[in-house]
């Protein structure tokens, strides 16, 4: 049984990390990071079977996660650190020279927990499916997870991968869509509408799970648990998860403006004042 209070406390801490990290270098992507906090905390601290203390690239016998929308690296790094992959103190090097915490995640500097570089969008689903195929060849029953932005679904490669996974019954794979409806230039609906996303995935032959409250830990856990019940049933699984960009910081919500902007000193303090818990800042 999940320790809901503990997971929620961790979410507060991760959100503090996110705003402090991007503030420190006046760059980075807080909006999507804040929106995906519950999801990543749930995945790494409750759902996945993984081995943070002894990271291996091949991850044999472990569940794997691939971040396809690499720009939300702040939440990824914070959750990896707070799950034990590398020292929490290293978060202060984010986006600085000689850091393993590059603006977008990379394997180049051997940061534990990262298995693929991402940043240029649309590539992570193919990679995750490849890893899922390797698991099948290795008779490894673990699950492969991935996360994608909704705007990212405008990339053509995503749909090549969606087609492939269904045609080849890649059923040890759960893709989650951060369905926040916003991208750099505005609302996804206005920039390039995805139309009926659920119907699209269904038409491609996927099992579709909808998580209506992606910033509610209970709902996120239920959504992932629901998704897992379809593992091994002959279809790839997508979890369309509604989130709020900027969730947890009132002035960052309801707008696309905080997709890729960092708070100033005053805004940071205002954000931290809303993120109060059992603080253990790096």
């Amino acid at each position: 049984m999940a320790d809901l209070a503990k997971l929620q406390t961790t979410c507060v801490q991760v959100r503090r990390d996110i705003v402090r990290m991007v503030h420190a270098v006046s760059s980075g992507h807080p909006g999507g990071s804040l929106g995906c906090t519950e999801f990543l905390v749930a995945l790494y601290q409750e759902v996945m079977n993984h081995n943070p203390k002894n990271f291996s690239m091949d991850g044999i016998g472990e569940d794997l996660f691939f971040l396809s929308n690499g720009h939300i690296s702040p939440v990824f790094y914070s959750v990896l650190a707070r799950s034990g992959y590398f020292p929490v103190d290293e978060l202060k090097t984010f986006r600085k020279i000689n850091s393993r915490l590059q603006g977008h995640p990379t394997t180049h500097d051997n940061l534990p927990g990262v298995r693929i570089a991402s940043g240029s969008l649309g590539q992570g689903m193919s990679v995750a499916i490849g890893a899922a195929l390797a698991k099948k060849l290795n008779k490894d029953n673990s699950i492969v997870y991935s996360l994608h932005g909704d705007g990212e679904l405008q990339e053509g490669q995503i749909w090549e991968a969606v087609l492939y996974a269904a045609a080849n019954k890649v059923d040890n794979f759960i893709a989650t869509i951060d369905y926040n409806g916003r991208q750099i230039d505005g609302n996804v609906e206005d920039v390039l509408s995805l139309g009926n996303l659920k119907a699209k995935f269904e038409a491609f032959g996927w099992e579709v799970i909808e998580t209506e409250e992606g910033n509610n830990m209970t709902a996120v856990l239920e959504g992932l648990a629901n998704a897992k019940t379809f593992i091994g049933k002959g279809k790839p699984i997508v979890n369309i998860m509604k989130t709020e960009m900027g969730a947890g910081v009132d002035f960052m919500m309801g707008t696309h403006k905080w997709h890729g902007s960092a708070p100033n000193d005053e805004q940071l303090q205002k954000a931290l004042d809303q993120l109060v818990g059992n603080e253990a800042d790096y």
Binding site: G59, I60, I116, V127, I129, A131, L133
Partner: peptide, 16 residues
């Protein structure tokens, strides 16, 4: 679908 092929190949390396 060559782009997907390159991504699948990258993923297949993870697992040896």
């Amino acid at each position: 679908a060559e782009a997907n092929m390159i991504g699948l190949a990258a993923g297949l390396t993870i697992g040896g």
